[in-house]
Amino acid sequence: MSHRGNVILIEDEPQIRRFVCEALQDEGWAVFEAENGKRGLIEAGSRKPDLLIVDLGLPDMDGVEVIKEFRNWSAVPVLILSARTDEPEKIVALDAGADDYLTKPFGIGELLARVRAVTRRRLQAADISPKVTFGDVEVDFSQHTVNRAGQVVHLTPIEYRLLVTLLSNPSKIMSQRRLMQEVWGPNHTESSHYLRIYMSHLRQKLEIDPAQPSHLLTEIGVGYRFEP
Protein backbone atom coordinates (compact mmCIF):
# COMPACT_ATOMS: atom_id res chain seq x y z
CA MET A 1 0.00 0.00 0.00
CA SER A 2 1.21 3.45 -0.82
CA HIS A 3 2.82 5.51 1.89
CA ARG A 4 0.39 8.16 3.03
CA GLY A 5 2.60 9.85 5.56
CA ASN A 6 3.64 9.84 9.17
CA VAL A 7 1.27 9.71 12.14
CA ILE A 8 2.31 10.39 15.72
CA LEU A 9 0.00 8.55 18.11
CA ILE A 10 0.16 9.87 21.66
CA GLU A 11 -1.86 7.50 23.86
CA ASP A 12 -0.95 5.91 27.18
CA GLU A 13 -3.09 2.78 26.81
CA PRO A 14 -1.14 0.05 24.94
CA GLN A 15 -4.26 -1.85 23.79
CA ILE A 16 -5.79 1.27 22.25
CA ARG A 17 -2.44 2.13 20.67
CA ARG A 18 -2.26 -1.36 19.26
CA PHE A 19 -5.47 -1.38 17.27
CA VAL A 20 -5.25 2.26 16.20
CA CYS A 21 -1.71 1.59 15.03
CA GLU A 22 -2.67 -1.55 13.10
CA ALA A 23 -5.66 0.10 11.49
CA LEU A 24 -3.58 3.05 10.33
CA GLN A 25 -0.74 0.89 9.09
CA ASP A 26 -3.23 -1.10 7.03
CA GLU A 27 -4.23 2.20 5.43
CA GLY A 28 -0.64 2.92 4.52
CA TRP A 29 0.38 5.27 7.33
CA ALA A 30 3.68 5.04 9.13
CA VAL A 31 2.76 5.24 12.82
CA PHE A 32 5.10 6.42 15.56
CA GLU A 33 3.81 5.66 19.03
CA ALA A 34 4.34 7.67 22.19
CA GLU A 35 3.01 6.75 25.59
CA ASN A 36 3.15 10.21 27.11
CA GLY A 37 2.99 13.87 26.13
CA LYS A 38 6.68 14.65 26.43
CA ARG A 39 7.74 11.66 24.34
CA GLY A 40 4.99 12.53 21.85
CA LEU A 41 6.25 16.09 21.39
CA ILE A 42 9.78 14.81 20.85
CA GLU A 43 8.51 12.37 18.22
CA ALA A 44 6.46 15.13 16.62
CA GLY A 45 9.55 17.32 16.44
CA SER A 46 11.72 14.69 14.81
CA ARG A 47 9.42 12.67 12.55
CA LYS A 48 7.92 15.33 10.30
CA PRO A 49 4.39 14.11 10.95
CA ASP A 50 1.38 14.57 8.68
CA LEU A 51 -1.07 13.89 11.48
CA LEU A 52 -1.07 13.95 15.26
CA ILE A 53 -3.49 11.78 17.25
CA VAL A 54 -3.62 12.80 20.91
CA ASP A 55 -5.46 11.27 23.84
CA LEU A 56 -6.71 14.02 26.14
CA GLY A 57 -6.03 12.02 29.30
CA LEU A 58 -2.28 11.52 29.38
CA PRO A 59 -0.31 10.51 32.46
CA ASP A 60 2.28 13.28 32.42
CA MET A 61 0.54 16.31 30.93
CA ASP A 62 -2.83 17.47 29.72
CA GLY A 63 -3.54 16.58 26.10
CA VAL A 64 -4.62 20.20 25.56
CA GLU A 65 -1.15 21.34 26.62
CA VAL A 66 0.41 18.98 24.09
CA ILE A 67 -1.78 20.48 21.34
CA LYS A 68 -0.94 24.06 22.36
CA GLU A 69 2.76 23.31 22.37
CA PHE A 70 2.56 21.49 19.07
CA ARG A 71 0.61 24.36 17.50
CA ASN A 72 3.46 26.73 18.34
CA TRP A 73 5.47 25.32 15.50
CA SER A 74 3.19 23.16 13.38
CA ALA A 75 -0.07 23.46 11.45
CA VAL A 76 -0.33 19.70 10.89
CA PRO A 77 -3.83 18.31 11.58
CA VAL A 78 -4.52 17.13 15.12
CA LEU A 79 -7.14 14.53 15.99
CA ILE A 80 -8.08 14.07 19.65
CA LEU A 81 -9.40 11.03 21.47
CA SER A 82 -11.75 11.80 24.31
CA ALA A 83 -14.47 10.33 26.51
CA ARG A 84 -18.06 11.06 25.70
CA THR A 85 -19.13 13.24 28.58
CA ASP A 86 -16.43 15.85 28.24
CA GLU A 87 -17.97 18.33 25.79
CA PRO A 88 -16.33 21.37 27.47
CA GLU A 89 -12.98 19.59 27.33
CA LYS A 90 -13.47 18.95 23.63
CA ILE A 91 -14.25 22.61 23.05
CA VAL A 92 -11.11 23.63 24.94
CA ALA A 93 -9.07 21.23 22.82
CA LEU A 94 -10.64 22.50 19.59
CA ASP A 95 -9.97 26.09 20.62
CA ALA A 96 -6.39 25.10 21.40
CA GLY A 97 -5.97 24.06 17.78
CA ALA A 98 -7.24 20.49 17.46
CA ASP A 99 -9.04 19.78 14.19
CA ASP A 100 -11.44 17.08 15.25
CA TYR A 101 -12.17 14.52 17.91
CA LEU A 102 -13.13 10.89 18.25
CA THR A 103 -15.29 9.85 21.15
CA LYS A 104 -14.23 6.71 22.99
CA PRO A 105 -15.08 3.99 22.33
CA PHE A 106 -14.80 4.17 18.57
CA GLY A 107 -14.72 1.66 15.75
CA ILE A 108 -12.10 1.34 13.04
CA GLY A 109 -14.53 2.79 10.51
CA GLU A 110 -15.01 5.97 12.50
CA LEU A 111 -11.29 6.29 13.10
CA LEU A 112 -10.36 5.97 9.45
CA ALA A 113 -13.16 8.29 8.34
CA ARG A 114 -11.95 11.00 10.75
CA VAL A 115 -8.35 10.51 9.74
CA ARG A 116 -9.28 10.78 6.08
CA ALA A 117 -11.34 13.88 6.71
CA VAL A 118 -8.68 15.81 8.59
CA THR A 119 -5.90 14.85 6.20
CA ARG A 120 -7.97 15.44 3.05
CA ARG A 121 -8.48 19.05 4.04
CA ARG A 122 -4.79 19.50 4.01
CA LEU A 123 -4.64 18.35 0.43
CA GLN A 124 -7.61 20.48 -0.53
CA ALA A 125 -6.16 23.62 0.91
CA ALA A 126 -3.69 23.67 -1.95
CA ASP A 127 -6.10 23.79 -4.89
CA ILE A 128 -8.54 26.64 -4.72
CA SER A 129 -11.80 25.39 -6.07
CA PRO A 130 -14.29 28.09 -6.97
CA LYS A 131 -17.19 25.68 -6.72
CA VAL A 132 -18.38 23.26 -4.05
CA THR A 133 -21.20 20.81 -4.50
CA PHE A 134 -22.95 18.73 -1.91
CA GLY A 135 -26.23 16.84 -2.34
CA ASP A 136 -28.13 18.76 -4.98
CA VAL A 137 -26.61 22.07 -3.94
CA GLU A 138 -23.93 23.92 -5.84
CA VAL A 139 -22.14 26.90 -4.32
CA ASP A 140 -20.12 29.18 -6.57
CA PHE A 141 -17.70 31.25 -4.50
CA SER A 142 -16.64 33.46 -7.38
CA GLN A 143 -20.21 34.35 -8.34
CA HIS A 144 -21.53 34.33 -4.73
CA THR A 145 -24.43 32.16 -5.87
CA VAL A 146 -26.09 29.13 -4.43
CA ASN A 147 -28.11 26.79 -6.61
CA ARG A 148 -30.20 23.90 -5.51
CA ALA A 149 -31.37 21.45 -8.14
CA GLY A 150 -30.78 24.12 -10.74
CA GLN A 151 -32.84 26.75 -8.88
CA VAL A 152 -31.22 29.83 -7.38
CA VAL A 153 -31.47 29.84 -3.59
CA HIS A 154 -31.63 33.28 -1.93
CA LEU A 155 -29.43 33.54 1.11
CA THR A 156 -29.01 36.55 3.36
CA PRO A 157 -25.45 37.87 3.79
CA ILE A 158 -25.10 36.21 7.20
CA GLU A 159 -26.46 32.90 5.92
CA TYR A 160 -24.01 33.03 3.05
CA ARG A 161 -21.05 33.87 5.27
CA LEU A 162 -22.00 31.01 7.60
CA LEU A 163 -22.29 28.60 4.68
CA VAL A 164 -18.96 29.65 3.22
CA THR A 165 -17.23 29.29 6.60
CA LEU A 166 -18.59 25.76 7.00
CA LEU A 167 -17.86 24.82 3.40
CA SER A 168 -14.25 25.97 3.54
CA ASN A 169 -13.68 23.56 6.43
CA PRO A 170 -15.17 20.35 5.07
CA SER A 171 -15.63 17.54 7.59
CA LYS A 172 -14.03 19.72 10.18
CA ILE A 173 -15.85 20.36 13.39
CA MET A 174 -16.32 24.08 13.94
CA SER A 175 -16.94 25.16 17.53
CA GLN A 176 -19.80 27.54 18.13
CA ARG A 177 -17.35 30.14 19.30
CA ARG A 178 -15.26 29.90 16.17
CA LEU A 179 -18.30 30.16 13.88
CA MET A 180 -19.69 33.12 15.80
CA GLN A 181 -16.33 34.81 15.58
CA GLU A 182 -15.89 34.25 11.86
CA VAL A 183 -19.44 35.12 10.84
CA TRP A 184 -20.57 37.77 13.34
CA GLY A 185 -17.19 39.08 14.44
CA PRO A 186 -15.20 38.80 17.66
CA ASN A 187 -17.72 40.76 19.77
CA HIS A 188 -20.63 38.40 19.29
CA THR A 189 -19.29 35.10 20.56
CA GLU A 190 -21.79 34.94 23.45
CA SER A 191 -25.16 35.00 21.71
CA SER A 192 -24.87 31.55 20.19
CA HIS A 193 -28.65 31.24 19.69
CA TYR A 194 -28.24 33.42 16.58
CA LEU A 195 -25.97 30.73 15.21
CA ARG A 196 -28.64 28.09 15.78
CA ILE A 197 -31.32 30.19 14.15
CA TYR A 198 -29.18 30.80 11.04
CA MET A 199 -28.08 27.17 10.86
CA SER A 200 -31.76 26.29 10.93
CA HIS A 201 -32.42 28.72 8.06
CA LEU A 202 -29.62 27.16 6.02
CA ARG A 203 -30.99 23.67 6.61
CA GLN A 204 -34.50 24.78 5.62
CA LYS A 205 -33.11 26.13 2.39
CA LEU A 206 -30.48 23.49 1.55
CA GLU A 207 -31.28 20.17 3.24
CA ILE A 208 -33.80 17.68 1.92
CA ASP A 209 -35.00 16.83 5.45
CA PRO A 210 -33.92 19.68 7.76
CA ALA A 211 -34.72 17.58 10.85
CA GLN A 212 -32.43 14.79 9.66
CA PRO A 213 -29.66 16.72 7.90
CA SER A 214 -27.01 14.90 5.94
CA HIS A 215 -24.57 17.76 5.29
CA LEU A 216 -25.05 20.51 7.85
CA LEU A 217 -24.59 18.46 11.02
CA THR A 218 -24.90 19.42 14.65
CA GLU A 219 -22.29 18.24 17.13
CA ILE A 220 -24.31 18.71 20.30
CA GLY A 221 -22.58 20.76 22.95
CA VAL A 222 -19.63 21.50 20.66
CA GLY A 223 -20.54 23.05 17.35
CA TYR A 224 -21.30 22.21 13.71
CA ARG A 225 -19.73 20.28 10.92
CA PHE A 226 -20.12 20.35 7.17
CA GLU A 227 -20.04 16.85 5.71
CA PRO A 228 -19.75 16.90 1.89
Binding site: I16, V20, G57, T85, K104, P105, I108, G109
Partner: peptide, 18 residues
Protein backbone atom coordinates in the same frame (compact mmCIF):
# COMPACT_ATOMS: atom_id res chain seq x y z
CA UNK B 1 -14.45 4.62 37.27
CA UNK B 2 -15.33 6.25 33.99
CA UNK B 3 -11.73 6.21 32.80
CA UNK B 4 -10.85 2.75 34.09
CA UNK B 5 -13.91 1.10 32.60
CA UNK B 6 -13.93 3.01 29.33
CA UNK B 7 -10.33 2.33 28.50
CA UNK B 8 -10.70 -1.47 28.24
CA UNK B 9 -14.05 -0.99 26.50
CA UNK B 10 -12.38 1.20 23.93
CA UNK B 11 -9.78 -1.47 23.38
CA UNK B 12 -12.46 -4.13 23.15
CA UNK B 13 -14.54 -2.20 20.61
CA UNK B 14 -11.52 -1.28 18.53
CA UNK B 15 -9.89 -4.69 18.51
CA UNK B 16 -13.09 -6.64 17.87
CA UNK B 17 -13.89 -4.19 15.08
CA UNK B 18 -10.45 -4.71 13.59
Amino acid sequence: LSHDLRTPLTGLVGMSDA
